[in-house]
């Protein structure tokens, strides 16, 4: 059976650190960085490799900073 894997690319400079994506992710892939971007926001980062490419994070992101890929492996 084909397994689904995914990946997200976060535009950390545009991320405002609202954390809405963290609650939307069913795989608990996203958390907030300890570092801040040039605007002073803690930004979204991946904390594991469990992404399935469901795009929930991107769908709720108010600033459209997340690009999502999904592949069968």
């Amino acid at each position: 059976m084909a397994k689904i894997t995914g990946d997200i690319v976060i535009d950390i400079e545009r991320c405002k650190g609202c954390e809405v994506c963290t609650t939307a992710c069913p795989q608990e892939v996203i958390a907030m960085s300890k570092e801040v971007n040039s605007k002073g926001y803690n930004y979204a980062i991946k904390v594991n490799a469990n992404c399935i490419g469901c795009a929930n994070c991107a769908v709720v992101c108010p600033d459209g900073v997340i690009t999502v890929y999904r592949a069968k492996v």
Partner: peptide
């Protein structure tokens, strides 16, 4: 970083701004 650069291809793109 937990990146998977090998799947970041146009045909695998499911969401972008």
């Amino acid at each position: 970083t937990f990146d998977k650069p090998e799947i970041r291809t146009p045909e695998n793109l499911v969401y972008s701004k």
